[in-house]
């Protein structure tokens, strides 16, 4: 599966469009991480627990999107976009969407 965030796959031609595919996930970290994050908030700096949380969720969202595209019979996804929104304290929704195409 080729994934790009431009309208084409360079070096290949699009032969068929399948339409929008998307994947989303909502994840939360256990309370220990939340407590660590609020402690880290006193001195500032990177919150590794949350970075990891978002990274894992984003990978899962991409996996779900890829799975969706595969079911349609596509072999590439173009024009992919990400969006993040917070549902509640410590939980985040990650959403990835794009256009499934077949390239040759």
């Amino acid at each position: 599966m080729i994934i790009t965030n431009i309208e084409t796959v360079p070096g290949k031609t699009i032969v068929e469009h399948f339409g929008l595919v998307s994947g989303s996930t909502i994840r939360a970290k256990h309370i220990g991480r939340d407590i660590m994050a609020s402690l880290k908030n006193l001195v500032g700096g990177e919150l590794k627990g949350y970075t990891q949380l978002l990274q894992e969720s984003r990978n899962q969202a991409i996996d779900r999107m890829t799975e969706h595209a595969r079911q349609m019979g596509a072999n590439a996804i173009v024009n992919v976009r990400f969006s993040t929104s917070s549902i509640a304290q410590g939980a985040a929704e990650l959403y990835a969407y794009g256009t499934a195409v077949r390239v040759r």
Binding site: L42, G45, L47, Y50, V80
Partner: peptide
Amino acid sequence: RSAELVYGSVVISIDY
């Protein structure tokens, strides 16, 4: 030769 989606993210907090 190839095209691939790449991404990087970070969460940073402010100090008190």
